Computed example of a mutant assay.
Amino acid sequence: MKLSNLILLSIASMAFFYIQLWDPQVVTPLFLAMLTVCVVYGIYNKDINITHISGVMLVLTSVEYLSFELGIIDYITPSENKLLQGSIIYGTQFIFTFITTLALILRVQISRLISSSERIELTNFDGLFHWVFMYMSVINLLGLLENIAWSYFGWKSWTLIYDNFEGLIYIAWAVCCGAVLTMMICSAKSNGSQDQEPRLS
């Protein structure tokens, strides 16, 4: 099966699965679990590129998730001031997704700073993941601007991002999970083909 078809099949499967759940208390940990599995897979198979790609997404997404889950954002967010509250929430998410985007764009350079491995290289998947997080950055930025229009200027009909925020983010996570799954499958196939190559005496 071609790589493009495999990616589309994985993404479609993950998107269908996510839509069935549609619960942030389930979907977010599931997304982090998928990234964790990919990191463990990369470490086990000594694939530094997979480890670092999934590790960047896992670390930054986990920090963002914990900042909300542990109540850090709620603690500094004044509920009586909707403008400031929405700005902090959307702004925090925008900052994390934007930093993740930059980290994925510069993944090879960051990997070489962390490790001296000669196996560090630009992969086909490096060109995909940063677009997913760039998309999420745009969604969070639009949410921030919409919140300002709604709470400061009184444009109460501007709730498109707010009403569909979870679905828009779930689409990105489904794409990301599908690509992560495909990345592991391709790595396993590559390792399998190398193991089957005849050794020259």
Rank of each mutant, 00 (worst) to 15 (best):
I171M: 09
V175D: 02
A188D: 05
V175Y: 05
S190G: 07
I169E: 02
G167W: 11
I169K: 05
M184R: 06
S190D: 10
D195N: 12
T182S: 14
Q194M: 08
M183T: 06
T182M: 03
C176K: 06
L168A: 14
G167M: 09
C177I: 12
S193M: 13
I171V: 14
E166C: 00
G178A: 14
C186D: 12
C177N: 14
I171C: 07
A174Q: 08
G192A: 10
A179L: 15
A174D: 08
N191T: 04
T182Q: 02
L181P: 01
N191P: 00
F165Y: 15
N191L: 15
Y170D: 05
C186V: 06
G192D: 09
V180E: 02
E166S: 13
T182L: 02
S187Q: 04
A188F: 06
C177F: 04
C177T: 12
G167F: 11
M184H: 04
E166A: 14
A174H: 06
I185G: 00
I185V: 14
K189H: 10
N191F: 13
A188V: 01
C177H: 01
K189D: 11
Y170C: 07
V180C: 08
A188G: 01
S190K: 09
A174S: 15
L181N: 04
S190A: 06
L181Q: 02
G178L: 12
I169H: 03
S190E: 10
Q194F: 05
I171T: 13
S193G: 00
C177S: 15
G167S: 12
V175A: 13
G178M: 09
S187Y: 05
S190V: 00
V175L: 13
G167P: 07
T182A: 09
S193P: 00
S193Y: 09
G167I: 10
C176D: 15
M184I: 08
Q194D: 10
V180K: 01
K189N: 12
K189Y: 10
G178T: 13
I171N: 04
I185R: 04
S193C: 00
A179K: 01
L181S: 08
T182V: 04
I169V: 15
S190T: 14
Y170T: 08
S190Y: 00
L181H: 03
A174M: 07
G178H: 10
S187N: 10
T182G: 05
C186E: 14
I185T: 11
G167A: 04
L181G: 05
M183G: 03
S190Q: 06
S190I: 00
L168Y: 08
D195T: 09
S190L: 00
K189L: 07
V175S: 05
S190P: 02
A174Y: 07
G167H: 10
C176T: 12
W173K: 11
D195L: 15
V175R: 01
I169C: 00
A179E: 13
A174C: 12
G178E: 10
C176L: 10
I185N: 04
V175K: 01
F165N: 06
T182N: 09
N191C: 03
L181D: 03
V180G: 03
C177Y: 01
C186I: 09
A172L: 08
D195S: 15
S187L: 06
D195E: 13
I171L: 15
I169N: 01
I185K: 01
F165Q: 15
